Computed example of a mutant assay.
Amino acid sequence: MIIKEFSELNEELINSIRILENVCKEYDGLNGNMFLDNSLNFNKNIKNLFMAYDDDILVSVLYMFIPTKAEAEISAYTHPKYRKRGCFKSLIHRANEEVKRYDIKDLLFVCESKSKDGKETVKNLKTAYDFTEYLLEFNRDSKILTPSELLKIRKASFDDAKQIIDVCVDAFDDSYEVSQSFTMKTLESKDREIYVTELNDVIIGSCSVSYDENDIFLFGFAITKENQGKGMGKETLIKLVEALCKDESKNIFIEVDSGNDIAFNLYKKCGFEIKTAFEYHRMNIE
Rank of each mutant, 00 (worst) to 15 (best):
P80G: 06
P80D: 07
P80C: 04
P80R: 03
P80K: 02
K81M: 09
K81W: 01
K81C: 03
K81R: 08
Y82Q: 04
Y82N: 10
Y82C: 06
R83W: 03
R83Y: 05
R85M: 12
R85G: 11
G86I: 02
G86M: 03
C87E: 14
C87K: 15
K89N: 08
K89F: 06
L91C: 06
L91V: 06
L91I: 07
I92W: 09
I92N: 07
H93Y: 09
H93Q: 11
H93I: 06
A95E: 09
A95M: 13
N96L: 14
E97S: 12
E97Y: 10
E97P: 02
E97V: 05
E98A: 10
E98R: 09
E98M: 08
E98Y: 09
V99C: 01
V99L: 04
V99Y: 00
K100Y: 01
K100A: 02
R101K: 15
R101N: 13
R101Y: 00
R101F: 00
R101P: 01
Y102H: 13
Y102K: 00
Y102C: 02
D103K: 11
D103N: 14
D103E: 15
D103Q: 12
D103Y: 03
D103W: 00
I104G: 08
I104Y: 05
I104P: 15
K105V: 08
D106T: 12
L107E: 10
L107H: 14
L107G: 03
L107Q: 15
L107D: 04
L107P: 13
L108E: 02
F109T: 00
F109I: 05
V110R: 06
V110K: 10
V110C: 11
C111Q: 05
C111M: 04
C111K: 03
E112K: 02
S113N: 13
K114Y: 10
K114Q: 13
S115C: 12
K116I: 13
D117T: 10
D117K: 09
G118V: 06
K119C: 02
K119M: 05
K119L: 15
K119G: 13
K119Q: 07
T121A: 13
T121W: 05
V122T: 01
V122R: 03
V122G: 01
V122I: 14
K123L: 09
K123A: 10
N124A: 06
N124W: 05
L125T: 02
L125C: 01
L125S: 00
L125M: 06
K126H: 12
T127P: 12
T127C: 14
A128P: 00
A128K: 14
A128H: 11
A128F: 07
A128S: 13
Y129W: 10
D130Q: 04
D130H: 06
F131W: 03
F131P: 02
F131E: 04
T132W: 01
T132K: 04
T132S: 09
T132P: 07
E133H: 06
E133C: 08
E133T: 09
E133V: 05
E133L: 08
Y134G: 04
L135C: 12
L135I: 11
E137H: 04
E137M: 12
E137A: 10
F138N: 14
F138H: 14
F138P: 02
F138G: 12
N139V: 04
R140K: 13
R140Q: 11
D141H: 10
D141T: 08
D141M: 07
S142M: 07
S142Q: 07
S142G: 05
K143W: 07
K143P: 07
K143M: 12
I144V: 15
I144T: 15
I144P: 01
L145V: 14
L145H: 10
L145A: 12
